[in-house]
Design a protein around this nucleic acid. Structure first.
Length: 562
RNA sequence: GCGCCCAUAGCUCAAUUGGAUAGAGCAUUUGCCUUCGGAGCAAAGGGUUGGGGGUUCAAGUCCCUCUGGGCGCACCA
């Protein structure tokens, strides 16, 4: 049992002894100011109403009823409006490190998810160009959320949804055609350098497939484009395949792996769009107006109704939101009782719509399904100026540009360090700097320094088991703070998982790295008396383990040396 | 005009999800220090948490309102 649980149990027992109602669960928190103590409880304030007494009096009675020894409490005090502060005995506190040393890479994991399936959909870029910074933020955020959930015992599926249908794919196809035919691009077509590369590769591919020269293919495309739909399809499919391969390469460079790639086009070929339309009609929430088929999404909280199938003069095709609904139906039917979509906040209007569509089907899908994690835009800064232009993509900066320039670890950290709903400034100069101003460098440095202790001392970390350590020797303020930070990891990561907020892990890492550096600067490990050295080696190893675990969740490496 | 999000030190951001005197880093000022181990360490100044109102033992956090910013409001995706 951890010191925290022991203390909580003892407070609860004492509370009952002085008349707290059944089921009363006192809250234990870290005081903001460590000088107040290691833990604080608001029990006295929470009991003020049910017991009809002043918080101060309840606090006194509560303390009198407690057995400090049973809870490992060295001293306690009543403060402010009725907080009770506890300072744990150093030995009790530090002995919590045994759990870290015993569990190693497992320390911090929990089983909240109990193996239940969850689908995390992210990136989901249209295959019309390289991944840009926004996708990068989404990749880092989505991957970290997925890792957090896996860490919390969920059975996670990472999914990428390809919008390989619709108007933008035709624009891509026609952009490639324009390059092949040598005609100027229209304003709404794709202007990046990469389109030219795709066009060149496409000509070579067609030439090989048809046994023609490149010049002959060019002439053929130019002559038959309007009349030959098979040719147009061939160009479209080549372009989509080429850009999917391109995006895959970007994601590999970023170290993100997906379990499922779901193609929007398959929703049409497998009749799922048609089935969804029929089901919505059957459920009675559809109506005809102006020649189009509408869904009454206003019945489910939308501010206006939405067209499902366009009128004949507009082409008679389903609008994009129908496949979106059909897609989420497949998630539900595939057994994902929980689904999380990570998207840019510019897509926030789809949230209500998709949920409305799912509700309108009346098939027992919960109202809040799917959950959404939205994130704001990214601004890339270099030398104090906003960067907007990439050589490859033209009008935007690509993920690859960033990874090439500052490395995968820094890109991941910078994308995760801010709350999703706040705007993010990506400072390229800071991200690439090899100094302690750079948070990634600072955190990794902490891990490397801890590793260095073992290297320099020529000590195999595997021999440090915590057995026989005199834990009460870890009584320096910096040591106590470090121990507390490490032991907070499980509850911190659990909170970050519940809130789907990986930035908490990033912030915690930075704080904890600072605590490590402070300790490291103030206290030596090697060449100390054996009892102190043994205890500090245990602390160093535990710190190394927890830092590595946290970095691992964010997909960032924990280097042995830098 | 409507909807969603945001607003915290000069700058970039935290704040244990409603807890105590709102904290870090950078920048500024001052003083130490010279490596198991790579310029660090210690301290100071800097705030009406955008304005106003409300809810309660307690509000940066919840509610209302105003201001300012981002995004979205297609028979585009």
């Amino acid at each position: 049992m951890t010191a925290e649980l022991r203390l909580r149990a003892e407070v609860a027992r004492a509370a009952r002894a002085i008349g707290a109602p059944d089921g009363f669960a006192p809250a234990l928190d870290r005081p903001r100011d460590p000088s107040h103590g290691d833990w604080a409880t608001n029990a006295a304030m929470a009991l003020a109403k049910p017991l009809g007494k002043k918080p101060q009096d309840i606090a006194k009675a509560l303390l009198a009823a407690m057995d400090p020894a049973a809870a490992g409490v060295a001293e306690s005090s009543i403060a402010g409006p009725g907080f009770i502060n506890f300072r744990l005995d150093s030995g009790h506190l530090a002995s919590g490190l045994m759990a870290v040393l015993e569990q190693g890479a497992e320390f911090g994991r929990n089983s909240t998810g109990s193996g239940k399936p969850v689908n995390v959909e992210f990136v989901s870029a249209n295959p019309t160009g390289p991944l840009h910074v926004g996708h990068g933020r989404q990749a880092a955020l989505g991957d970290a959320i997925a890792s957090l959930l896996a860490y919390g015992g969920w059975n996670v599926t990472r999914e990428f949804y390809y919008n390989d249908g619709g108007g933008q794919i035709e624009r891509l196809r026609d952009s490639v055609y324009a390059h092949i035919a040598g005609i100027p691009l229209a304003a709404d077509q794709y202007h990046g350098e990469y389109v030219k590369d795709v066009a060149t590769a496409c000509v070579a591919d067609l030439a090989a497939a048809r046994g023609l020269t490149a010049a002959a293919v060019t002439a053929l495309v130019r002559a038959n484009w309007a009349s030959d739909s098979a040719l147009r399809d061939a160009v479209r499919m080549f372009a989509v395949a080429a850009l999917r391969a391109e995006q895959d390469a970007d994601l590999r460079a970023f170290g993100v792996k997906f379990d499922v790639y779901y193609l929007e086009s398959s929703l049409y070929t497998e009749q799922r769009v048609a089935e969804t339309i029929e089901a919505l009609k059957a459920a009675g929430h559809a109506f005809m107006e102006d020649g189009a088929l509408w869904l009454r999404t206003t019945d489910f909280g939308d501010d206006k109704d939405r067209v499902m199938v366009r009128s004949a003069e507009k082409g008679g095709e389903p609008t994009y939101f129908v496949p979106d609904v059909a897609y989420h139906v497949t998630k539900w039917k595939r057994g994902f009782t929980r689904a999380i979509d990570v998207q840019g906040s510019d897509h926030h209007s789809t949230v209500t719509r998709v949920r409305a569509g799912l509700q309108a089907l009346e098939m027992g899908i919960p109202k809040g399904y799917p959950e959404y994690v939205l994130h704001q835009m990214v601004t890339v800064m270099r030398s104090g100026e906003e960067v907007k232009i990439s050589k490859r993509a033209g009008s935007y900066v690509t993920v690859r540009d960033l990874i090439d320039e500052v490395g995968r670890d820094a890109v991941r950290y910078f994308f995760i360090m801010r709350k999703g709903e706040s705007q993010l400034v990506f400072d390229v100069d800071l991200a690439r700097s090899q100094s302690e101003d750079n948070p990634v460098y600072y955190i990794q440095m902490a891990h490397a320094r801890l590793s260095g202790i073992f290297r320099v001392g020529n000590i195999d970390p595997a021999t440090i088991t915590g057995a026989g350590v005199a834990w009460d020797t870890l009584s320096q303020p910096e040591e106590r703070e470090l121990v507390k930070a490490l032991l907070d990891w499980p509850s911190l990561v659990a909170g970050a998982t519940e809130a789907l907020e990986p930035h908490r892990v990033a912030n915690w890492l930075l704080e904890t790295a600072r605590t490590v550096h402070l300790w490291y600067h103030k206290h030596h490990v090697l060449d100390e008396p054996p009892e102190i050295m043994t205890a500090r080696l245990a602390l160093a190893k535990a710190s190394r383990i927890v830092l590595a675990n946290a970095l691992g969740v964010l997909g960032i490496s924990a280097p042995e040396r830098m």
